[in-house]
Nucleic acid binder design. Structure first.
Length: 932
RNA sequence: GGGCCGUUAGCUCAGCUGGUUAGAGCGCAUGCUUGAUAAGCAUGAGGUCCCUGGUUCGAUCCCAGGAUGGCCCA
């Protein structure tokens, strides 16, 4: 030691912060190793086992579709799920989370076919195609699983549920058996997209829109004598031309043979126009475009609303039957006549209207597009060739009002590029009103909690307007509907006994068996056709709608054992799932188990770009979840997920993340401050709460209040509120408490009671804080937890071994008030123009009861206000303000070289530049050093 | 076109049942600190609460219409 006492800077005698926890997060680099660490340590499984005797709390995973990369919408949803699961785990619940994947269905089948370079799925052996599809789906599952785990998500990722598993396929078929037993299934007609060239049904996704020139024809549906009288009556008209007709417009004349109705809009105004010697009904809004150059000649005789026209009949132009006027809300007033030609066999809307009004569903067209005998004179003609003949005939009969060519965008088959048509085909349905299913589902929703609350009305409305649920698809990649076709009478049979046999068989061999087994493998003993008594059958080749498959995940995953009770406590998905999974799960739950399969439905919003616009791959604004994590790290993105109000639509983009990153850095640095100041705190040094210094006890109370608040917010899924509370808390802790502790922590002797008290409080705050933020920031809290000495951590290897306090500590409002008062006083000191912190002395005079509160803090009050000297006076009498005097002045004495407080120095001749407190500490340290 | 939801400081969001100088954090500006230092502290400037009407003594908050964005459906 060559320095003279006068030169010595004493820095080495301070207890400066020290920690291995780095300031720089390097999340993208560090996080993957942490995922592996959790895996190796089986952190999640161990915590679950630890909670084994406590109540279960199950979040049931809605399965993502195993196709394509996960985007930020997935990230938000999956991270939120994980946040709730972690909250439950830390709360001691048995929060088993079984992630799942939706793996059948057309998108994967199409992608696989594309991959194989095959255009027609009939051209490949179904079993071969299924094998390839499965391979493809498993590939995506693996990729998505990797990304989900990379997010820091806890769950049984080694045993996810998968809709392609044999056991899952068996569940699906058993569900069908249940429904069959309850007579909830039937086979009926439905308008589906059809390619007459390929002779196959098509799905929405197999359609490409291409420009097409079609005949645009306006056709008179004339009223006969009686019909005319009623019609005039509705228009409140006595006199009118003899010939009265309703004018329709169509670009598909070949569908006219199947016409059974004309749809009008209830709230639209229709006019009866006289043109030459006839009267014509069209929507007023479209009259000028319909009459075109003859508009001036058309005279409006009377008006009526669509509603007033409801139920009238007119004559079909050539089929020799009537066509009734019905109401439909899809009728638009921008093209055509406002009176829409309705052929339930040839259109989706038309079909719904047909079902609603009980109209006949005519389908006079065979699979190849040839008119059947039902089409009368047109039988044997190809529908597209018949167009011209029909128009000619209409012209000849005088029914044609106007015709011209019309170019529009029209759906074409993606394979052969021929125009597609709608054609009624036989499909399997779940009967919505059988067993009052619809109403019971609506009632079941009543008992479910919804966040946001309007979700209930939304879901109930979906059910209210729900058409019959068509569950059959004519494709290969899916679970077969185990229906039989009687060779004797051609009847379709879906028998529960057959379905049970199929379920058992699929449970062993997977659903492929349906393609490879002989039909006899599925026949119960003595099975005969219920219609004709026949004994010879074929297997039907329909698969089940994937919405039905995902709709039974609750049956496949829950209720199998105590760990996973049915129903689940929570489901959480995007708002599109009101129509999707929330709905399908509810319907199967009610139909099969008689109740909703979940207790609470939470909806998360959509992730839009920074301008609030929808992200899209095509515009290049879609962001891949993995890319985002590689760039910013999962924890920053998770913090983003907490920082937005996830119930509403949220925004995501680089600038948004830049802001969140700053908040993240704040949190990280404050955690680092706590860690770096307890580095030398041994387990035996920790002081019991009741023996802490008053300021430290107060801080612990503030921590308890914080934890209580955050836990309360977590319990109501108010993640965003919790985020705000976390940010507010750590900034308050930092501003007041950390600043106050620096001097005692740094300048007291290492084992000084004041210092150990401060450290003990910091350790308490750190534990509580890390537990509280762990659901949102698992990587960072775990990293911090690992930076705590093993001695302090004790048995709790992971931050996920810690828990929210079982009992909420009672926090007195007086304490929180006192804390706030200290913050205010501290701010006043800090804002002082006279000098900085330890250059200052403060004279305070306050009235009761504040005086007593402040007085009880002792020297901690001076520490909290970060001044060198402080005097506290008791103001007596009635004062409007509790603080009567607040005098900041320059402190007397000089700046102690070691602790920087202004004091009288030199009491110890060996250390002339030190205050007496510091001199004592240094003497002891020096003595200890020499003793070595 | 229909149903539902949103629109409050540059950003993310609070503002409960109508009366507040409309708030917080981040960012920004200024100052301090340099023993949390690619950190910390303090202060300050930012808002016609989407627009237009209406109800009311009084509206960011209620009602109607519109604009705009989103989801679902057509």
């Amino acid at each position: 030691m060559n320095q003279t006492p006068a030169e010595r800077d004493y820095r080495d005698t301070l207890n400066l912060p020290k920690t291995a926890f780095p300031m720089k997060a390097d999340l993208p680099q560090r996080e993957p190793a942490r995922v592996a660490w959790w895996q190796e340590r089986r952190t999640y499984e161990r915590r679950l086992a630890h909670n084994a005797h406590n109540p279960a709390w199950i979040l049931h995973d809605g399965p993502p579709y195993a196709n394509g990369e996960l985007h930020m919408g997935h990230f938000l949803n999956m991270v939120l799920k994980d946040v709730f699961v972690k909250i439950a785990l830390l709360d001691g619940k048995r929060a088993t989370f079984v992630p799942g994947w939706d793996m059948h269905g057309l998108p994967i089948e199409l992608e696989t076919l594309k991959h194989l370079g095959i255009k027609d799925f009939h051209a490949i052996d179904p079993l071969e195609l299924r094998a390839k599809c499965k391979e493809r789906a498993l590939y995506w599952l693996d990729r998505q699983r990797g990304v989900r785990m990379r997010m820091g998500t806890f769950g049984d990722f080694e045993h996810p549920y998968r809709t392609v598993d044999a056991s899952f396929e068996a569940t699906i078929v058993n569900a069908l058996a249940d429904l069959a037993e309850k007579h909830q299934l039937y086979k009926g007609l439905r308008s589906t997209l059809w390619c007459v060239h390929d002779e196959t049904a098509l799905a929405e996704a197999e359609i490409e829109y291409e420009p097409k020139v079609s005949p645009s024809v306006y056709v008179r549906f004339a009223a006969d004598r009686q019909q005319r009288a009623k019609l005039l009556d509705r228009f409140a008209l006595d006199m009118a031309p003899e010939r009265v007709s309703v004018l329709i417009w169509t670009t598909t004349p070949w569908t006219l043979p199947a016409n059974v109705a004309i749809a009008v809009r209830a709230d639209a105004v229709y006019g009866l126009y006289q043109l030459d010697d006839e009267a014509i009904v069209v929507a007023e809004a479209l009259a000028s475009s319909v009459f075109a150059e003859r508009s001036r000649d058309a005279v409006l005789l009377a008006r009526a609303t669509g509603e007033q026209l409801d139920g009238l009949d007119v004559q079909h132009p050539f089929a020799g039957r009537t066509s009734s006027i019905v109401l439909a809300d899809y009728v638009d007033l921008e093209t055509g006549t406002g009176a829409v030609h309705t052929a339930p066999g040839h259109g989706a809307d038309d079909f719904e209207t047909g079902v609603k009004y009980g109209l006949p569903i005519l389908n006079p067209v065979d699979a190849a597009g040839i008119f059947t005998s039902e089409a009368g004179a047109y039988a044997g003609l190809h529908i597209f060739k018949a167009n011209a003949k029909i128009v000619d005939d209409l012209r000849a009969s005088g029914a044609l009002f106007r015709a011209h060519d019309y170019e529009h965008s029209y759906p074409h088959c993606w394979r052969c590029h021929h125009p597609v048509v709608f054609r009624a085909t036989a499909q399997w349905f779940i009967a919505m009103d059988q067993n009052r299913l619809r109403q019971r589902a609506i009632d079941a929703a009543e008992a479910v909690e919804f966040t946001p609350q309007w979700g209930k009305a939304r879901l109930q409305q979906m059910l209210e307007n729900h058409p019959e649920w068509c569950i059959s698809r004519q494709r290969t990649w899916g679970t077969p509907i185990p229906a039989l076709l009687c060779k004797g009478c051609n009847e379709s049979i879906l028998d529960a006994r057959v379905a049970r046999i199929a379920a058992e068989r699929f449970a062993q061999a997977g659903a492929d068996a349906w393609w490879s087994d002989p039909v006899t493998a599925y026949l119960p003993a003595d099975f005969v056709c219920p219609t004709c008594g026949g004994t010879s059958f074929e297997k039907e080749k329909n698969i089940v709608d994937i919405w039905f498959e995902s709709g039974v995940t609750h049956l496949a995953v829950l209720g199998k054992h105590d760990g996973l009770p049915w129903p689940s406590d929570l489901v959480l998905e995007g708002g599109d799932q009101y129509r999707g999974w929330f709905r399908s799960s509810l319907l199967t739950g009610v139909a099969i188990r008689g109740a909703a399969p979940y207790k609470h439905v939470v909806k998360n919003g959509w992730v839009n770009d920074e301008q609030g616009r929808a992200m899209s791959k095509s515009r290049g604004t879609g962001i891949d979840a993995r890319d985002a994590m590689d760039k910013w790290g999962a924890d920053v993105l998770r913090l983003w997920a907490a920082s937005v109000e996830f119930i509403d639509d949220v925004r995501f983009g680089p600038t948004v993340i830049e802001h969140v990153s700053r908040v993240y850095r704040n949190i990280r640095n404050r955690v680092r401050f706590m860690l770096s100041n307890i580095d030398d705190l041994g387990a035996g040094d920790v002081i019991a709460r009741e023996h802490l210094d008053p300021l430290d006890r107060l801080a612990c109370e503030v921590v308890d209040a914080f934890v209580g608040d955050v836990k309360g917010m977590y319990d109501t899924f108010s993640i965003h509120d919790a985020y705000l509370r976390i940010v507010e808390f750590e900034s308050a802790m930092s501003g007041l408490y950390f600043d106050a502790l620096k001097d005692p922590l740094y300048s007291r002797a290492p084992g000084d009671h004041r210092r150990r008290s401060a450290q003990s409080a910091l350790w308490y705050a750190l534990q509580r804080f890390l537990t509280a933020v762990a659901p949102i920031l698992p990587f960072t809290s775990e990293e911090a937890w690992q930076a705590v000495s093993p001695q302090l951590r004790g048995e709790m290897e992971s931050v996920f071994d810690t828990s929210f306090p079982h009992h909420r500590h009672a926090v007195s409002p007086a304490s929180l008030n006192l804390w706030q008062t200290l913050r205010d006083l501290r701010a006043r000191v800090a804002a002082s123009e006279i000098g900085r912190d330890f250059e200052l002395q403060l004279h305070l005079e306050v009235a009761s009861p504040l005086f007593e509160h402040l007085h009880a803090l002792g020297d901690n009050l001076r520490e909290a206000l970060v001044v060198a000297q402080l005097t506290l006076g008791h103001a007596h009498g009635e004062a409007a303000q509790p603080i009567v005097r607040f005098d900041v002045t320059r402190a007397g004495g000089e700046k102690c070289r070691r602790c920087w407080k202004f004091r009288s120095l030199g009491s110890d001749p060996a250390h002339p530049a030190l205050c007496s407190d510091c001199a004592h500490v240094v003497r002891d340290l020096d003595a200890a050093g020499e003793a070595l």
